[in-house]
Design a protein around this nucleic acid. Structure first.
Lengths: 209, 209
DNA sequence: CCAAAAAGTGAATAGTGATTCACTTCTACT
DNA sequence: AGTAGAAGTGAATCACTATTCACTTTTTGG
């Protein structure tokens, strides 16, 4: 026998894999998943087409991993904000702002994550992605209800509805067809989304717990 | 010369076209647009593949027409309800119920119209479809604000957010992956969606105009 | 009945892009 | 230096469907 896996090789392999993921991520950020054919990914990563398949079972699997990567960052930002200081209602507002502002900054990526038609395996990841947000919001709602800053409600439904409300409000402006928003319009949109969601969960005035 | 277009032939041609549309509609209702290949449509409509192309420029155009057909019915039902008797808030509740209940009854079709990845031409129609709902809701909001049953707000944004909230709340339960809802769960879901949206637009208690 | 024109047919073609695989190059160990 | 085994290669293949088009059938008015 002769060849044995060695740390150096392991590192090299991991690096190549990462280059493929990064190349895909770039291409998606530039033009969505539709922009990331295997041939293009290979070219950008400076590997042969076949090499992509040494590292990933299939294109779907590559996409799923890329989706997870991109998504994790976003979800974490929102989670951080939701877990920050202050009353639940203020945290929610701040989180909605973070979500919207980040989406508006990187509209192509946001659109790819939120709405681009891709394939079933990515759709599954997308479901999880939205689910992840919904769970974060749900926790926030539950706490807010306890402290009385939100009205009692079906938190499961409300959190899904919040995710939908944000997504739908953004999809129009984010879609590749639309021209971008200027700073003011982005600001206004962000605030209006936050207000809508806050109104939907706030308690009825004049009724204490 | 000899052949001239005659009422009889015109009718026949229209009937064939309609059979193609109906066949497509059926296939979409059964399994979404992905289930409706040209070959299958032709088979179901009992025409040759080529005949489909005598009536439609392309598959996309056929799909766009089918989408419009299916959509029109739904939008009209909601419009009727919104324009019914009673205060704007009650009409909105009723319309949200109609939307949700109909979607739950025909989940595959609803999913195809709301969320299924298809092609750019259908996506365009889908944009219009959501837009149509948004406009209906927007009119209702505007009236409700005038009569004081809703709080003053950015009606454009709120109507989009309502559409998103309904869609997102339903997409999970409607997706082909999910198993259907029983009657009670459907009822509950419907009510919770309506409540969420109503809370989002209602005025702050104790503040008159 | 006949010729002109349209409607109807479906096997063959074409476009796209993912996936394979026989082959080459590189690495690690004796 | 030799070699086992892995990593890397990319032209060729495959898979899937939409679309075409040469041909057949039907309809109609003379």
């Amino acid at each position: 026998m002769a060849y044995r896996e060695t740390p150096r090789m392991r590192a090299r392999k991991a690096a190549t894999r990462q280059r493929i993921v990064d190349a895909t991520l770039q291409l998606v950020a530039e033009g969505g998943f539709g922009n990331a054919s295997v041939a293009r990914v290979a070219e950008r990563a400076e590997v042969a087409i076949g090499s992509v398949y040494r590292h990933f079972e299939s294109k779907s699997e590559l996409f799923a991993e890329v989706f997870r990567n991109a998504t994790e960052i976003e979800v974490n930002k929102v989670a951080e904000t939701l877990n920050g200081e202050g009353p639940a209602s203020e945290r929610l507002t701040a989180a909605l702002r973070v979500f919207a502002q980040r989406a508006i900054r990187g509209p192509t990526m946001a659109w790819a994550l939120i709405a681009e038609p891709v394939d079933p395996q990515v759709d599954e990841e997308r479901l999880r992605y939205r689910q992840a947000y919904a769970e974060l919001f749900e926790k926030n709602l539950t706490r807010g209800i306890k402290t009385g800053v939100f009205a009692p409600q079906n938190t499961r439904l409300s959190s899904a509805a919040i995710v939908g409300a944000i997504a739908e409000s953004l999809v129009g402006p984010l879609s590749p067809a639309a021209e971008g928003l200027d700073g003011d319009a982005a600001q206004q949109l962000t605030e209006d989304i936050a207000h809508f969601c806050l109104r939907a969960v706030r308690p009825i005035e004049g009724e204490g717990s």
